[in-house]
Design a binder for these strands. Structure first.
Length: 755
DNA sequence: GTTTCGCATCTTTTT
DNA sequence: GATGCGAAAC
């Protein structure tokens, strides 16, 4: 049953209605928190369908599966079942779906494997090892993000190798071989018939670039209307793909982007605000709408959000307001320890529930890092409050689940080296590391896959026999997968490999849990195989290969369980787009929120502030902020000052306040502020505090022999200068640190001249 | 080839 | 505090 047009348009305010009905040409909607953004997006799509646009001509891109699913559901309510044919999904899932169809244009198999970040990391680790590079100089995480950002900026290995700027930075960081690692990583992924998360975007661009007529043309014709949610979180590559699809000669340029620069919290992984700025240039006929009325939160909460975000200079001008009552003041809680913080929050949750009779599902605890969840879990258990932790280890990342999935992956794609290595000797079958290394080396020399080396590489009769047995088993699985359903194949594999039997012999509590997880995985596969309701990447494709591609893009946010009543525990990042009656933002301390990694750059602090802005605007009625004087980190006690963000709130909004001035900072009292445990010197001079009016010296100002101060390393003396202009590098001696001779690239350093 | 133990590192945030 | 890796023992 559909709702008539007049009805749904009546549910919108003036600006919202304009944003919905202005369907032709480029449109930008700047949407403050709680301003009805989702409503605008869904009604806009519904309106298009009402205006005789076919649902499958509409492409709607979001960042999470959950957002996409909700949107589809809501549109179906307004526009009827035909909305199911809408193309709505995450960038990654929509493009994976296209790539599956178009794989042959890229010389990839359509059942290509999607490498998750663990796969990428283990592949990179192996490459670094094989190249005999020092893993301390080449940490996988750093290398991975370097490669990821190269891909996100459309820099191929070739371009990377030729890019003097990039190479110079790498050399400066004593990692001159990054380009070679990148080249090899890309080659191995291709060899394995695998794409990583970035490839799903990168290869889509490449696909469009290389096949402008037959492929790109097809999708241009199909998608007449584009919608992009959370546009502030798109990166260069995502925007490049969007432009391919919509910005061409003769295009109607029906693209609608929705976003909020104040909620941009993914700059760390390449999202760039430039996209919003460029959008106005790339689409001159742009019409802009600003949604500024907040319908979600009480006045106090909206005001707090405004006060905080005001400290960020770079912003699109807008003023968020609400006509709601003041509501309850914001609770501010100070505790002596992290455990105490857990207890107080649990107390308040009980109190809030008793007083207001709200469901658990209306309550959320939000923290900066997933590791902070532990104390809260403990107290939720102790108080018998049902809760659920999102983030952290997801279901599909658990060892036993990954093992079975690895078998399935190899069954579908034998070249999938990450999966193959995981299971070739699990359960134990006598094929150890030295044998695998031999095969692997041979494979590299011959440029063939590890799997193919099993037949070609010379080996002892014993190893040969074992490997052939393994190979036959997998081939048998592959045959099964072609004849039987994904579920039948998977159960057969779980049985035949002895995975389930191994787990059954373990009667410990954890062992039982593991068995349960494998059973749950099999249940999931069954649901996928047999249940039409379960969403798949390609709606009609129930193959094992389709299953694997589908789950590799799921996160535990996407698990069901909406019907259960639990308190939500999650990171602030994960909470974006969600809302709750009562929100507890915890751990508001320097070095945590804002994170210590952000301390040295003003831009990073601004991003932390936007993150805090996102956190507080999740609350509808009650917002509670808390911080602890001490907490355990890596099993060590650390002491942090209250977060600077708390000082950006005016006292008249706060309740239960610790008077700010009375709360003398530890640094003022002369204590050394312990920042994690990475610098072990206990009584370090307070060189970390830079004067408020501090302006960093320009690279040219720094001269040999000068005394300078570095925000992290303290005072030091310049003992050498080399390079010029942009690549001017100083060698500075910092007596206060463990490794006192440092080479500092002046372009990046924030030095203060002391002479 | 397999197991065990000690050590280092980890924690930012996610598709 | 947990995990994962490498060296050394088995």
């Amino acid at each position: 049953m559909e709702i008539s047009e007049t009805t749904y348009l009546d549910e919108l305010n003036d600006v919202q209605r304009q944003a919905v009905t202005c369907t032709e040409g480029p449109v930008m909607v700047i949407a403050g928190p709680g301003s009805g953004k989702t409503r605008v997006l869904t009604y806009r799509i519904a309106h298009l369908i009402h205006s005789q646009v076919y649902p499958d001509q509409i492409l709607s891109l979001t960042f999470t599966n959950k957002a996409a699913r909700e949107m589809k559901e809501r549109i179906t309510k307004v526009a009827g079942d035909s909305a199911q044919r809408l193309w709505a999904g995450t960038f990654h899932s929509i493009f994976a779906r296209m790539l599956r169809v178009e794989a042959k244009h890229l010389n990839y198999p359509s059942n290509f494997t999607i490498y998750d970040s663990d796969d990428s990391k283990s592949l990179l680790g192996r490459i670094i090892k094989e190249m005999h590079l020092d893993k301390n100089l080449y940490p996988v995480n750093t290398i991975r993000s370097r490669i990821s950002s190269a891909k996100s900026n459309l820099i191929t290995p070739k371009l990377y190798a030729a890019d003097e700027e990039l190479r110079k930075i790498d050399r400066f960081q004593r990692r001159p071989m990054v380009y070679a690692i990148y080249e090899r990583y890309v080659r191995q992924c291709f060899q394995a018939g695998a794409m990583d998360f970035d490839d799903l975007l990168y290869k889509t661009f490449e696909l469009f670039q290389k096949n402008p007529d037959d492929v790109l043309g097809k999708y241009r014709n199909r998608f007449r209307y584009l919608l992009v949610d959370e546009f502030q979180d798109t990166n260069f590559l995502q925007y490049a793909i969007l432009k391919k699809l919509i910005r061409y000669e003769g295009s109607a340029k029906n693209i609608c982007i929705v976003g909020d620069d104040a909620q941009s919290i993914y700059a760390f992984r390449g999202a760039t605000i430039d996209n919003i700025l460029n959008f106005q240039k790339d689409f001159p006929a742009l019409q802009t709408f600003k949604l500024e009325q907040n319908y979600r939160s009480t006045h106090y909460i909206v005001e707090a959000a405004n006060q905080v975000i005001r400290h960020n200079k770079k912003q699109i001008q807008k003023s968020i307001w609400t006509d709601q009552k003041s509501g309850q003041k914001i609770k501010l809680i100070k505790t002596i320890s992290d455990a105490e913080e857990g207890r107080r929050v649990a107390d308040l949750i009980v109190e809030f529930k008793n007083r207001n009779h709200v469901a658990n599902s209306e309550i959320a605890i939000l923290y900066r890092t997933n590791a902070q969840s532990r104390v809260f879990e403990e107290y939720m258990r102790r108080y018998n409050i049902p809760y659920r932790v999102f983030g952290g280890l997801s279901f599909y990342q658990r060892k036993e689940v990954k093992d079975l999935i690895a078998y399935l992956r190899v069954t579908v794609n034998q070249r999938d080296e990450e999966a193959l290595r995981r299971i070739i000797n699990y359960p134990k079958r006598g094929i150890g590391n030295s044998s695998i290394d031999k095969f692997s080396q041979f494979a590299a020399e011959q440029s063939i896959s590890l799997w193919d080396s099993f037949d070609l590489c010379p080996a002892s009769p014993r190893v040969r026999k074992l490997v052939q047995q393994f190979k036959q088993m997998i081939t048998l699985f592959t045959d099964k997968a072609e004849k039987y359903s994904a579920f039948d194949t998977a159960s057969y594999i779980a049985d035949r490999t002895g995975l389930v039997d191994t787990l059954k012999t373990d009667n410990s509590i954890e062992g039982l849990g593991r068995l349960e997880n494998v059973t749950a995985l099999l249940d999931g596969i069954q649901a996928f195989s047999e249940d039409d309701e379960v969403e798949t990447l390609l709606s009609d494709d129930k193959s094992l290969s389709s299953y694997l591609q589908t789950i590799s893009l799921l996160t535990d946010m996407d698990e069901k369980g909406d019907f259960l009543d639990f308190v939500t525990l999650m990171s602030v990042h994960a909470a974006k787009g969600l809302e709750y009656d009562a929100v507890f933002v915890v751990g508001l301390e320097e070095n945590i929120f804002p994170s210590f990694q952000s301390m040295e750059s003003a831009d990073a602090i601004d991003e932390e502030r936007r993150l805090f802005y996102v956190a507080i605007t999740r609350a509808r009625k009650l917002l509670t902020l808390s911080f602890a004087n001490s907490r355990y980190r890596y099993g060590k006690m650390v002491y942090n000052d209250r977060s600077r963000f708390l000082n950006e709130l005016s006292e008249d909004l706060l309740d239960g306040v610790v008077p700010r001035r009375a709360e003398q900072s530890r640094a003022e009292k002369g204590y050394a502020t312990v920042r994690g445990n990475f610098e072990k010197k206990p009584a370090r001079k307070q060189t970390l505090v830079m004067p408020a009016d501090f302006v960093p010296a320009t690279p040219q100002e720094i001269q040999n022999g000068m005394k300078v101060r570095h925000p992290r390393f303290g005072e030091g003396k310049v003992i050498n200068i080399d390079g010029d202009n942009q690549s001017r590098v100083a060698t500075i001696f910092f007596p206060d640190i463990s490794n006192p001779r440092r080479r500092i690239m002046l372009k990046f350093a924030k030095l203060q001249i002391l002479d």
